[in-house]
Write a protein that binds this DNA or RNA. Structure first.
Lengths: 160, 160
DNA sequence: AGAATATCGTCAAGTATCTTGACCATACGG
DNA sequence: CCGTATGGTCAAGATACTTGACGATATTCT
């Protein structure tokens, strides 16, 4: 066995980006599996990413586009799918003839509820694994990172 | 939990999964942009994910499949693309008539070098943003998380 | 008011990534 | 040699996302 390459040493990267990516993927996989197990077969990571930007009381489609980091067409297609699944519904915006309002159906709200529950379960698992203190510190660092990197283009302050 | 809702509306989630996802995406976007700016136009996130599993001295395609979390077909298609771009090359494995060895071309090694440089730049930026201590603690927590969840399939003994 | 322009949402087509299923070639154990 | 497992490939389809074009409504300017 020629040890010209030590898998532990030369193998996997060990830098922020990689670890963030790995951790993120692990979380998503766990969450998605639990959601499907809970009966929400329509769930997917991309859809979750979009739903994360839709508050419980709904929003305007155009506002969604600003928030999500993708194109309006991508948002639209995701929305189309979610609407077809009966998770969301789109209504004309009474205050703007061009606009549409997006809001959850009962099915969507049920999924949100389950999602919250699962989210807490996973979080508990994490705390068990790395300890409460480390977990708190992780969240703190992550929040700081997020706050510190808003590229002053959109995130000015106050309402937008 | 201290609850500050300075965030506009009741919008964005604030849990591990979300933060991890946001942080990961931000990192990837920054890295990919820098790589493209450095002339590596073939670079993409999916490809990066695979390259992360290929050590500098190459590996067998089958070993790659074990490491990456995807199917062998997905690996193959990514490899096809990377090979077509001239980043990698595949050679027959002299010790196994079925197998193929994957290794970097000069172009690939150049990209790796640039990637390392960029990676350090980004890391420096992170440290500037959240402080050295917080950064260290973040890495520590991330590593613990990763170690804690490995399903004991590879982490046990030295030779694998 | 009327024209020019900007915003909102949609349609259509194309690309990248990943999945499943089928298949062939080589290795390995009897 | 034969049966089975492994390594890799081919092909087809699903999902996510991108770009370009377009119609409808709002807003601004004159």
């Amino acid at each position: 066995m020629v040890k010209e390459l030590d898998e532990k040493t030369d193998g996997l990267p060990d830098h922020v980006g990689w670890r963030l990516w790995q951790a993120s993927r692990a979380w998503q996989a766990e969450f998605a599996a639990a959601m499907r197990a809970a009966g929400h077969a329509w769930f997917s990571e991309a859809r979750a990413g979009l739903l994360g930007h839709i508050p419980r009381n709904g929003t305007r489609q155009s506002a969604l586009i600003e928030r999500a980091a993708t194109s309006k067409q991508a948002v639209q297609q995701l929305l189309d799918g979610l609407e077809a699944e009966g998770v969301l519904e789109r209504l004309p915006d009474p205050r703007d003839g061009r606009g549409k309002l997006v809001r959850y159906t009962r099915k969507g709200l049920d999924a949100l509820r389950d999602g919250d529950r699962i989210k807490l379960q996973i979080e508990r698992g994490y705390i068990d694994r790395i300890g409460e203190q480390r977990f708190a510190v992780l969240m703190d660092a992550l929040r700081s990172l997020d706050a510190g990197q808003g590229d002053a283009s959109e995130e000015a302050s106050g309402s937008k």
